[in-house]
Amino acid sequence: MMNNHKPTLKESLKGWLYVLPLLLIIGVFNLYPIVSSFAMSFFTEYNFFTNEVGALGLNNFTTIFSDPTFHDALENTLIFVVGVVPVEVILSLLIATLLNQIKWLSNLFRTIYFLPFVTSVVAISMVWRWIYNKDAGLLNVLLGWIGINPIDWLNDPHYALLALIILAIWKGLGFNIMLFLVALNNVDQRIYDAAHLDGAKPLQQWWHITVPMISPMTFLVTVNAVIASFKVFDEVYALYGGQPGPAGSAMTLVYYLYRAFYEQNKYGQAAATGVVLFILILLVTLVQMWFSKKHVHY
């Protein structure tokens, strides 16, 4: 039946009734928190427990923007994103390509790479704390073989962020490799047959066929990695035992937010930090989407 007539009030009510349950859930758990945290960032005098707002204004934003710790957090987060995302995406694509080539033990390798994803960040951080240990750590032993002096990864402020980046890359690999494997398997084998007959060598096939054919997945993985990296917190907390790195050298935006909210009870500033983070992620994602229009082939 074609529905050309204008719906009556009764029909409209009935329709809204059907979507009401989900609308309620989304409203309570998604929309309300977002709106109220936006609102909270403008509360300059606020009692969190009685929910009384004394005054409104932009003071929260001016305060955090004049706070050197916030600048550090912003800078560290940006360095972290730039350090993690490209390496993570490229490395997981390379490993997925290699895993896709081998038949022997490929399932075992897939499991090994996937393990970090199903393991708790805290447990992983314990292992990495040992790897990063200055005197007995595995990493310094390996570096020693190529003649690099032991580095105090966990206590030297110069290396704290690097240690964090390495841990994050390693942790993100498993899931991204799995996503890339799905994409690689979806490329029609006959296209490779055609490319082989057209004279494309394996590396040329990879560059001219594989990379463009899986670009939608690369886009998804990249957007996902960017968002996850902007929100980095667990790894900092677990690796440095509840501190933002030695001398605050691994302070990130979310850690700053966490500290403002839970430790300093500056709810307005925490919310303002959240808004800044939101706008940053939004901007970067918009840039990525604009870029993908030109370079992603669906």
């Binding site: 029609d188 006959r190 296209i191 047959d193 055609a194 490319a195 057209d198 066929i209 082939h297």
Partner: peptide, 25 residues
């Protein structure tokens, strides 16, 4: 030169790029 049953054209390339691909290689 082989024409596959499902044609196996490169979906991300234009018609001209498809035809040029063997010559590019």
């Amino acid at each position: 030169g082989m024409v596959f049953q499902n044609y196996a054209l490169y979906p991300h390339m234009t018609v001209l790029e498809n035809i040029m691909f063997p010559m590019k290689m």
